[in-house]
Design a protein around this nucleic acid. Structure first.
Length: 281
DNA sequence: CGTAGACCCTGCGCGC
DNA sequence: TGCGCGCAGGGTCTAC
């Protein structure tokens, strides 16, 4: 479900609704997602209040602080990754749990923030806020694509001494974070760049255009509330609209909107890859 | 070191 | 209506 825009949309929708809320109780309903829940660490969030919401890569970061005695250095951060099928929504606490509801944070408002994730590729853990950056999950991540440090020059530098198709490269979180399968396909289409093109045979000008298109596609998707294919929803359960703006993803066999040739699908790095054989080179 | 492939898991839509 | 198959927006680990 979620690439960077979906997580950002979720962050923005949840922020005004849970900020300053006290977490009264942590309800762990399953033993594990992608990794086992650390119950003790997660239970430390009970009694904390939500200080801010951040996003790094496709991780949603919920910063908390002690509801009493603030500034004592006991700030914790709840880290949530939605995997492929995760949905994080705010519902009334009286509402009965849904199938695959693995964890819920009961708030003072009488609502609970719950994670529903059928495929269980998601991840939830808790860290001291000050230890977060050093965590293995974050240590080797590339820059945020919407920050100024990301651009054509960065891509070109990282492509040195590397081989392989440009699409796989673009989806490598050590190169740049947040670009998943949908937005990689869309960015390459806009750049007229073939997903199989070797990274060693991409010009500086093309790296520039690609980086620019990554920024454009992601920004537009955030503006449209994300892409809802099956199940994405923001914190209130609202679907996104960017799927109507998709130019190649999922359009296998349909004519290219730019040149009319039929869009093709092939598997690259184990993922369905959509491109136009007529105008992507 | 970088790269390719397997794997984790459930649900859905399709063809038969 | 039911069954089996292929497919799915992510990341990590292993073998080479």
């Amino acid at each position: 479900m979620p690439e960077l825009p979906e997580v950002e949309v979720l962050r923005l929708s949840l922020l005004p609704r849970i900020l300053e809320q006290r977490i009264e109780r942590v309800e762990i309903r399953s033993p594990a997602l992608r990794e086992p829940f650390d119950r003790r660490a997660l239970q430390r969030l009970a009694g904390q209040e939500i200080a801010w919401l951040r996003r790094r890569s496709k991780y949603l970061l919920i910063d908390t602080r002690p509801a009493e005695e603030p500034g004592t250095g006991r700030e914790h951060t709840l880290v949530i990754h939605l995997g492929m099928s995760g949905r994080l929504t705010l519902v009334d606490s009286a509402k009965p749990p849904e199938k695959h509801e693995h964890i819920a944070f009961h708030l003072r408002s009488g609502q609970r923030l719950r994670l529903v994730d059928p495929r269980r590729f998601g991840l939830v853990f808790c860290r001291r806020t000050e230890d977060l950056e050093a965590d293995r999950k974050f240590l080797h991540l590339g820059p945020e694509p919407l920050e100024s440090e990301f651009g054509g020059h960065h891509l070109q530098e990282r492509a040195k001494n590397r081989r392989g198709p440009v699409k796989t490269f673009l989806m490598d979180a050590r190169v740049v974070v947040g670009v998943g399968n949908i937005y990689a396909c869309e960015s390459l289409w806009r750049t007229r760049l073939h997903p199989m093109r070797s990274v060693g045979r991409v010009s500086a000008a093309t790296w520039d255009r690609l980086a620019g298109n990554v920024k454009t596609v992601l920004s537009e998707a955030i503006g449209e509330g994300g892409t809802t294919l099956n199940d994405f929803a923001d914190g209130e359960g609202n679907a996104g609209y960017f799927q109507v703006s998709l130019n190649v993803y999922g359009r296998d066999g349909e004519p290219c909107l730019r040149c009319g040739r039929n869009i093709r699908r092939r598997v690259l790095g184990g993922r369905g890859t959509f491109y136009c054989p007529g105008c992507q080179h």
